[in-house]
Design a protein around this nucleic acid. Structure first.
Length: 855
DNA sequence: ACTGTCGGCGCG
DNA sequence: AAAGCGCGCCGACAGT
């Protein structure tokens, strides 16, 4: 590290002048700001106990640091530290800002944060800023590591679960059992191999430990073997940065400004040597997005605050009533058997351990008298509604819908045979569906009633805990807005959103209403959303050159790929001998061969039209994604109740239709197995060392070093096989989703250049969808600009035409959004003859007027 | 009281 | 032989 100089009210002017002169002559500098969030609004503070969220509208900049490349000093400025008398006024920030040369490049780690803060507090956009964290994302994935380090690291982290692995896999025979694991085997396998587990004992945990990482401290460690001071060390027990003096903070603050430059230079050099194409993409595509992210955060999203609180009120009353009914329904079904359910106790250790306690809690609650008061009623048991209302936690109380309780109810009290998915006992929505079906077949009405009530409760709980409650905490009381963070730090370089994540708004089902709480920026704006049509599949078609894809996607409007896949899948056994043209008959209500059309889960009879729509999406679209990202049809097969043989028969059928694309997929898998990475057309790579034979050998050695003999060998082979095929699937997925993400970024950047941004604001990306707030008088002009930006993608798509559809509405609500390219008639606005077709400009104007009148 | 882990579910 | 990928977020429990 280098020397750091504190600049505060005591600093002699010549020192300041010298520092600013150095800055004004530089071409590269690092910058970092320190903030404290003690002024955050109450809602965010409430969330503060669970996770750190910045209320950037109220954050106080305690100071900032900068470092000029190759200098021997870094500076830290006291703006709002505890030594009040030494603070410098805001004017210093402007003086500093003005000293930055126009041509200089600034580096910050997590630059959107610096951008947002300087904009919010001083109304300054730091120019030419480059994010060293974003560069790390271009340089490596979140789960990539130095192969040397990988080779040297032992698998010691597996030790906590090694006994259960050996125990469960002692009787496992790969020849005989294959993928058919018992519940306990599946559990322990999942503990180590789980895709989304970050547990220390898991493989992901192992990788996490050795990964380069994205955080500045981890990168500095992995690139320079330097241990930076941590935030906690710097705070040293104090609550926030504002409680430290400038002197106490200076070296911590300045470290960041120094090291982000070093990280930038190291990663840039590495990319220049290994993959210059990706470096170009970084500067022209990935890094410019940091300004988009910062702008989106500064502006935030407008919410209908009144409706949110009204809904909260309503659902509280609703939940109280549901709980009364659930209690009554349970009362009818009690008591439990005297003894615990033996097979369940064997299959589920938590049940053996605490099943009796759960039973007792249920019995006790049922005995508790109901209350007419909703608050009392919803706080009798633990649930997201009551807990948010009373501002409390579960604290060991009964939660009716918690998976353990649910399983005690389903498999103990109601005596349903445990539903298993891949060996593991399940209690999710699908399992509940199957259980309901059984009770329905048996005519067990009391049990059916309970199931229905529990489903209702879980639906309300989900909407409240995922949307309503967090929103009430995140809404800024002054603006009625939320200020989500958008980032692109994912393995595929897709974008993500958090606090709140508006990408995960329900579109169907009971909580779809939440979407309508998201509003345009002002009363004379609309929410405009544009979706690419089938873009992931179009890309597979484009990259592979497959003639069947070309037939489908070679012209606008596209033909329908999902129906053909759906028909193929149904033909395997559900509707034997079904052809695509017979399936298409269903769309128009025809069923000349009198097929028996039923819902796959409930068995309910369906009209041909409804069946068509349902199957096309669930099975057709499902099969397409299932296949290309897995090389098989496991999910679809489960839904269609296929045996293994039937599944592979379905796969053969599917592959036959797309033999060229299949060859492309296989080649891509071979590529990643050979080179350890795949490369997108923009040069960005996704590394998957896990796909290579070298990885296999390393892992074999690592497992062997852990001992355990035959059982461990069997376990490890099962894992390694699974991991290798997963890595290949990830490569295919990264190729497609990564390209889509690049297209979305290109489109957003292009729109900022070509549209009049005084009348349009980018609200958020939703992967294949871009959402804007647009002034009513600018919509007609904007749409062609938008479509050109989205559909002209020379980097990614070479042969097939791209297509997108636009919808506008008063809100983002499903019912409010009016489709402009696949119209549904509205009386007096959209004439009948436009059904399913694009609207003329004249009619679009009528739609706009219609929306404005409805305000 | 805090952390790590897990099941579950919303989206593309 | 093979058996979807990518996320963010919540709440309960177990271990400390």
């Amino acid at each position: 590290m280098i020397e750091t100089i504190l600049i505060d009210a005591r600093t002699p002017e010549p020192v300041i002048m010298q520092a600013l002169e150095e800055l004004s002559a530089c071409s590269l500098y690092g910058v970092d700001c320190e903030t404290q969030n003690s002024q955050a609004h109450d809602g965010i503070k409430k969330l503060g106990s669970k996770k750190l969220i910045f209320d950037h509208r109220r954050s106080v900049v305690t100071g900032f640091s900068w470092y000029v490349d190759r200098s021997n000093v870094a500076y830290y400025v006291n703006l709002n530290h505890a030594d009040i008398e030494n603070r410098l006024p805001d004017s210093f920030v402007f003086r500093w800002f003005n000293a930055i040369p126009k041509s200089a490049m600034g580096i910050a780690h997590n630059a959107p944060y610096e951008l947002t803060t300087f904009k919010q507090r001083y109304n300054l956009w730091l120019p030419n800023l480059v994010c060293s964290m974003q560069l790390a994302v271009t340089a490596h994935g979140p789960d990539n590591y130095d192969h040397e380090v990988f080779s040297k690291s032992t698998l010691a982290n597996i030790r906590p679960i090694i006994d259960s692995i050996l125990q469960e896999f002692s009787q496992y025979d790969p020849e005989k059992h294959g993928r058919n694991l018992t519940a306990d085997q599946a559990f322990v396998y999942g503990q180590f191999a789980g895709k989304s587990s970050k547990a220390a004992h898991s493989y992901n945990g192992f990788v996490d430990r050795i990964a380069y990482g994205y955080g500045l401290k981890k990168l500095t460690k992995s690139l320079f073997d330097y241990d930076m001071t941590t935030y906690e060390q710097c705070l040293n027990g104090r609550e926030h940065m504002g409680q430290l003096t400038g002197e106490e903070t200076k070296s911590y603050g300045a470290e960041d400004a120094y090291w982000c430059v070093q990280v930038f230079k190291a990663l840039k050099a590495k990319l220049l040597a290994q993959n210059p194409k990706a470096l170009v993409t970084f500067f022209k595509q990935e890094n410019p997005m940091i300004y988009v992210f910062a702008e989106a955060q500064v502006e935030g999203l407008s919410l209908n605050v009144e409706e949110i609180y009204a809904r909260q009120e309503l659902e509280r009353v609703h939940t109280a009533q549901l709980l009364r009914e659930i209690k009554a329904a349970l009362r009818k079904l009690l008591p439990f058997d005297r003894e615990l359910n033996e097979p369940l106790a064997k299959a589920q250790s938590y049940y053996a351990k605490s099943g009796a306690k759960k039973r007792q809690q249920i019995v006790d609650w049922v005995k508790t008298p109901d209350s007419d008061d909703p608050f009392e009623m919803v706080t009798q048991v633990s649930n997201p509604i009551g807990n948010a209302w009373a501002n409390t936690q579960g604290n060991g109380r009964l939660n009716i819908n918690y998976w353990q309780t649910a399983r005690v109810i389903f498999y103990d009290l109601l005596k349903h045979k445990p539903v298993r998915v891949a060996g593991k006992i399940a209690s999710d929505a699908e399992a509940r569906g199957r259980i309901t079906l059984t009770f329905s077949k048996n005519g067990e009405t009391d049990k059916l009633e309970l199931m229905a009530l529990l489903n209702k409760l879980s639906s309300v709980e989900q909407a409240m805990k995922l949307y309503i409650t967090p929103y009430t905490h995140l809404i800024d009381p002054e603006t009625g807005k939320v200020y989500p963070t958008i980032s692109s730090l994912l393995a595929t370089r897709r974008m993500a959103m958090s606090n709140p994540n508006a990408m995960q708004l329900a579109k169907y089902g009971d909580s779809a209403y939440v979407r309508s709480y998201f509003e345009s920026d002002s009363k004379d704006h609309v929410v405009l959303s544009a979706d690419w049509s089938g873009v992931e599949l179009v890309l597979i078609g484009d990259y592979s050159g497959d003639p069947e894809f070309a037939r489908c996607f070679g012209q606008i409007p596209y033909d329908d790929l999902h129906s053909g896949s759906a028909a193929d899948c149904l033909a395997v056994k559900t509707l034997e001998g079904l052809t695509e043209s017979h399936f298409l008959d269903f769309r128009y209500g025809r069923n000349p061969l009198n097929y028996d059309l039923r819902h796959l889960q409930s068995g309910e009879e369906m009209t041909p039209q409804k069946y068509f729509k349902y199957i096309r999406t669930e099975i057709g679209k499902g099969a397409n994604f299932n296949y290309w990202y897995s090389g098989a049809l496991g999910n679809v097969g489960d839904r269609l109740k296929w045996s293994t043989d039937e599944m592979w028969l379905g796969v053969d059928r599917y592959r036959d239709r797309f033999s060229v694309a299949e060859e492309w997929r296989v080649n891509l898998c071979e590529q990643v197995a050979r080179y350890g990475y795949i490369e997108l057309p923009d040069g960005q790579r996704r590394e998957r060392f896990e796909a290579t034979p070298a990885w296999w050998l390393h892992m074999q050695r690592k497992f062997a070093a852990q001992g355990g003999g035959r059982a461990m060998e069997n376990f490890s082979e099962l894992f390694m096989k699974g991991m290798q095929s997963r890595a290949k699937n990830q490569a295919v997925n990264a190729m497609i989703q990564g390209s889509c993400a690049g297209m979305a970024k290109q489109a957003i950047l292009r729109i900022r250049e070509t549209a009049d941004m005084r009348y349009v604001r980018f609200m958020m990306p939703i992967h294949d969808e871009l959402v804007f707030s647009v002034h009513k008088d600018y919509i007609l002009e904007f749409i062609p600009i938008l479509k050109a930006a989205m559909n002209q993608q020379p980097t990614y798509v070479k042969t097939l035409p791209l297509h997108c559809t636009v919808a506008i509405g008063k809100t983002f609500g499903v019912k409010d959004q009016i489709e402009l390219d696949e119209a549904s008639p509205i009386e007096g606005v959209i004439p009948e003859e436009y059904e399913g077709k694009p609207l003329s400009e004249h009619i679009i104007q009528r739609v706009i007027d219609h929306i404005m009148e409805s305000r």
